[in-house]
């Protein structure tokens, strides 16, 4: 396969072999597995007229899922930003027993299949579960309510903020805090005026990653959500429901909305990461 001139390397780096083979293979595989199938979504949805498309993606039941999916994801991202920062801070700055184990288990949501997480969380938060039975007498129902969706989305988002903030915290020179302290700043002032601005891009990146992941999440949510239309139904589930009713075009229309959102988030995350690299870059 011949490679477009766009992908020609500059001459000086041609010393190493295999460029055309490696890049050609990459492009073919990428196109077959990712690009062409994704294009199918947009092309299929194009069989709908604009008004038909709009009718599908703005029907009340679908809009209710957006509200839940995006609202719960935003909230879960925010919760993860606060507690993720605390967890990263504790892992970097404090010594305590079991730290190595906890550090390793932070990645559990990446490694544990979502279906397993889903049934485990349901078992915990159901009325007879370990946590649910404590909350029930207080009048708080978690499982099979929108609150359950939130719990599942917090779970799957934990590693994102921790793992984006942790390396930045580790690389932070203690000199910055020493300078602030020698200038008379107290610990809180040092945190808000010196540390937080440096950590902010990483925190936002972690938040955006957790948020984007949460919006598309399916496996861990459907067990605990109860999936009641208009109340605890998430957007990915609507796609499945429409598919089960053989409404391929309807499913595709909703998928387009989600994909467009994903692309916007991807762009935002790339910009955030560039900003983060700039702010924490060592340009002495």
């Amino acid at each position: 396969m011949s490679v477009a001139p766009f992908f020609n390397p500059t001459r000086q780096t041609r010393v190493l072999p295999g460029f055309h083979l490696a890049l050609g293979y990459t492009l073919v595989y990428l196109s077959l597995i990712v690009l062409i199938p994704l294009a199918a979504v947009f092309i299929t949805s194009a069989t709908l007229s604009w008004s038909e498309f709009w009718a599908v993606v703005s029907s009340p039941r679908v809009v209710a899922t957006y509200k839940l999916s995006f609202g719960a994801s935003l909230l879960a991202g925010a919760i993860n930003t606060v507690f993720g920062l605390m967890l990263a801070w504790a892992l970097v700055r404090y010594s305590f027993p079991g730290k190595k184990l906890i550090d390793a288990l932070v990645d559990l949501p990446f490694a544990l299949p979502t279906a397993v997480a889903g049934i485990a969380l349901t078992a915990l938060y159901a009325g007879n579960g370990w946590i649910g039975s404590l909350l029930e007498p207080l009048g708080i129902k978690v499982a099979f309510t929108p609150l359950g969706v939130l719990v599942a989305l917090v779970f799957i988002g934990v590693p994102f903020v921790v793992r984006t903030v942790q390396p930045i915290l580790e690389d932070l020179e203690t000199e910055l805090e020493e300078a602030a302290a020698s200038l008379g700043a107290n610990r809180w002032q040092t945190f808000t005026r010196v540390l937080l601005p440096v950590l902010l891009p990483a925190l936002l990146t972690g938040f955006a990653l957790a948020f984007a992941r949460a919006v598309g999440e399916y496996g861990s949510v459907i067990f605990i959500a109860g999936n009641i239309p208009m109340i605890s139904e998430i957007t990915p589930l609507i796609i499945i429901t429409k598919l089960e009713q053989y409404d391929y075009v309807g499913a595709t229309a909703v998928a387009v909305v989600m994909l467009v959102f994903s692309f916007i988030m991807l762009l935002a995350i790339n910009l955030l990461q560039a900003w983060s690299a700039k702010r924490t870059g060592r340009d002495r």
């Binding site: 199938p37 994704l38 979504v41 589930l237 595709t252 998928a255 989600m258």
Partner: peptide
């Protein structure tokens, strides 16, 4: 890209 696509859509594209 596949990381930012909902798994449900990942299945959907092959059904399409």
């Amino acid at each position: 890209l596949p990381f930012s696509v909902s798994p449900v859509i990942a299945g959907l594209i092959f059904v399409l």
